[in-house]
Structures are given as C-alpha cells and as structure tokens.
C-alpha cells in the first residue's frame, strides 16, 4: 500500500504526515491533528457528523481520503470562532435557540450552516431545512436548529435576532 506525504492546513495550522493511501480524512483530522470535534456517525455519507469545510466548502470527511485533501485548507468546528476568540454567530445562535441536545451532530451542523449563511445571508426556513438535510440530528427535531441558523443569519446581517426568532431564552 502506498504512503504519501501530505500537508493539510487545519484551522490555519499546517499538519504534515506520511499517511497510507486509505487513511480517511476524518481520522487524519481526529488522530493526526488531534481535533476531535469532528465526529463519525455512519460510514455511508448519510449523517454528516463528520462535515468539515475544505477550502470553504462543506464536505463529509468520512468519505474523503486524506491524500485527496493534500494541500487543502480545512476548517473544522474548532476553527469556527471569530479571530478575536469570540464565538461565531452560529455558535451563539445554537446555544441561544437550544439548537443542540447531545452535541454529537452539532459540529457538522455548524460547519454546514456556516457555509449556508455565507452563501445565502437571509435564508428562508425552507432553504435552511434543505440546506441542512445532509446532516442528521436525532435529538432536536430540527425546529430549533432552523431557529439557530436564522438567529445567526440575522445577527450577521446586523438585525436583532430576537425580532426574527421566537425562543424561550429570548422572550422578554
């Protein structure tokens, strides 16, 4: 089996290793780079818990070979927060709107949603539901994930989120 020298930037830090051809990217991220926020839930590209951004595009990292990502810039949930260390609007949205229970799907949901609202700053509920339909959540029933994304989109547009979403934590 061939092995390959790869260098992949993970959240701005280059990680180099000699890896076997079959090493899955999710394992490289978790084990070589030690970033365990990215999870593995299904093996069949069904659940999206392993979603990371490769050069800004969300991808299911359990179905990418590490060698395929050689030279790429990856962003994982650990790299989502703003440069000044403050939480990304989505992270704030998910906690304000109770968009997570067990937290296992959350990193993937966040990475998908981050790309979604970057491309579509004011998505409708339908657009959000379609946009996150590659990510399964077994706990929340999705209502509050939709609201979390709406919250973040509003905030990034400079709109007070409490005027856009109705959740108990924001009720006056």
């Amino acid at each position: 089996m061939s092995t390959h020298n790869v260098t992949i930037s993970i959240n701005g830090t280059p990680v180099s290793a000699n890896v076997p051809a079959r090493l899955l990217l999710v394992h490289f991220i978790r084990e070589n780079a030690g970033q365990t926020g990215t999870h593995c839930g299904c093996d069949t590209t069904s659940c999206g818990a392993c979603t990371v951004q490769i050069n800004g595009t969300p991808v299911k990292s359990c179905t990418v070979l590490t060698v395929q990502a050689d030279g790429a810039e990856l962003t994982t949930v650990e790299g989502l927060a703003n440069k000044d260390g403050s939480l990304h609007a989505l992270q704030e949205g998910f906690t304000s709107c109770h968009g997570l229970h067990c937290g296992f799907c959350t990193p993937g949901m966040l990475m998908t949603s981050a790309a979604l609202i970057k491309e579509n700053p004011d998505p409708t509920e339908d657009e959000i539901r379609w946009g996150i339909s590659g990510n399964l959540c077994r706990c929340t029933g999705y209502n509050n994930i939709v609201k979390s994304v709406q919250y973040a989109a509003a905030k990034l547009r400079g709109v007070d989120p409490s005027t856009v979403v109705d959740v108990p934590s924001l009720r006056k």
Binding site: E78, L80, T95, L100, F104
Partner: peptide, 15 residues
C-alpha cells in the same frame, strides 16, 4: 430558560 451550561463545550468541538 437559561442557556445550557453544557453547550459551551459542545459548540466549540470540545465535547
């Protein structure tokens, strides 16, 4: 309806 205390780690990939 306080925000959940456990969320701090989960939203940052530190579960």
């Amino acid at each position: 309806s306080m925000k959940r205390k456990e969320d701090v780690r989960f939203i940052q990939g530190k579960g």
